[in-house]
Design a protein around this nucleic acid. Structure first.
Lengths: 154, 154
DNA sequence: ACAAAGCCGAGCGGATTACTTGGGATTTAG
DNA sequence: CTAAATCCCAAGTAATCCGCTCGGCTTTGT
C-alpha cells in the first residue's frame, strides 16, 4: 500500500507549480533542481499530467509548465489518479465507471471492506486542493519560522 | 496503491478460519480449496500470520490452523500490517514507533497529506474486526438469499 | 541561427511479486 | 510401527514493475 515515486514526485512538482501560479511558465529544469528530482524522469510525469489537463505546457525558449487550472480547482486526488491509476486497494473495487465487477460481488464481505477503504482514501485525497495545501504550508512555515519545503527522501 | 495478493489472500484465509472458529484446527488444504488459492503459497502467508500470533497451528494428522484470538479481537488492520507491512502511503510517514522521520518533517506539506491518508486507512482497517465482517456477511447473505462467499478474482 | 525549452519512444538494470519445488519434522490412525 | 496427514522451511524462478537514463526530434524566443 505504498505510493510509487510517480505519485510522490508528481505531487511535489504540482505543489511547486502552484507556488508560482500566475508567474508564467516554469521550466522543468527549475522544478527538478528545486525539488532534487531527475529532470528526465519528471518530464514523463508532466507528460501524463498534461494529457490529463492538469498542467499546460509552453514550448520553446522561455517556455515551461503551468497549472492547467487554478490551485483551488486541482485536488491531490486528481493528481494521484493520473499518475497512479484509479483509486482502490484491489482490482475488483477500483473506481472505473463500468469497470469489471466480479460475479460474486453481491455476497462478498471483503469487497465491502475494500470499498470502504477506497472511499476513505478518495475522500482524503479529493478533499485536499493544491490551494488548501499551500495555505497549510504557510501556516506551518509561520508557526515554526522555517523556510524549508519538501521532505527529500519522501 | 494496491494491496498485493498477500493481503488479499490472507484476509480471505482469516475470514475462512473465523467462520469455523471453535471447530478445532482447519487444515490448510481445505481453506486453499475452498477459496481457490494455491496451498503452498497460502502456507507462506500462514507462517507469517502464525509468527505474529494471529493464528495458531496444530501439526500432524488432524492438524491445521486456528485463529490465535477470538474473531472480535482480530482486525483487518492486524492482518494487513503483518502481510503488507506497516500502513502508510509513503516511507516517511510509515507507522513504526521510532521509525526514521525525514529531517524536514516539520515544514513539509506533503507529509501532512500523507499522514492524513495513513490515518484514514488505518482507521478503516482497524475498525473492522473479523467478527464485524462475519456479521455483515450474514446480513448480506440473508438480504440476497445467496450462499456464495469470496470474490474469486479479487 | 542558435539556444532554450518541451516532446517522444526505447531501453535497461534491479527489485518485487506470486508463486513452485523439494525437502524436512510432527502427530495421529490403524 | 508404519503410513498418512499435516505443518515447517528454504530456495529457486519466471514475469512484471519501477525508476530511471538516453538519444533524438520539434517548437519558439532572441
Amino acid at each position: 500500500m505504498r505510493l510509487s515515486t510517480k505519485g510522490r514526485y508528481g505531487m511535489r512538482a504540482m505543489l511547486a507549480l502552484a507556488r508560482r501560479y500566475g508567474e508564467g511558465p516554469v521550466p522543468l529544469k527549475e522544478i527538478a533542481e528545486g525539488e532534487g528530482l531527475s529532470e528526465a524522469y519528471l518530464e514523463q510525469l508532466m507528460s501524463e499530467l498534461r494529457k490529463a489537463g492538469l498542467v499546460r505546457s509552453v514550448r520553446g525558449a522561455q517556455g515551461g509548465y503551468l497549472l492547467g487550472r487554478e490551485p483551488a480547482a486541482i485536488t491531490a486526488g486528481d493528481i494521484i489518479r493520473v499518475l497512479e491509476g484509479p483509486i482502490g486497494p484491489v482490482q475488483c473495487v477500483i473506481e472505473i465507471p463500468g469497470g469489471e465487477v466480479c460475479h460474486r460481488a453481491e455476497y462478498c464481505v471483503e469487497r465491502i471492506l475494500w470499498e470502504r477503504l477506497r472511499d476513505s482514501i478518495a475522500q482524503v485525497l479529493d478533499g485536499s486542493t493544491l490551494a488548501d495545501l499551500l495555505v497549510e504550508e504557510k501556516k506551518i512555515a509561520l508557526a515554526s519560522g522555517g523556510w524549508e519545503r519538501s521532505c527529500q527522501p519522501s
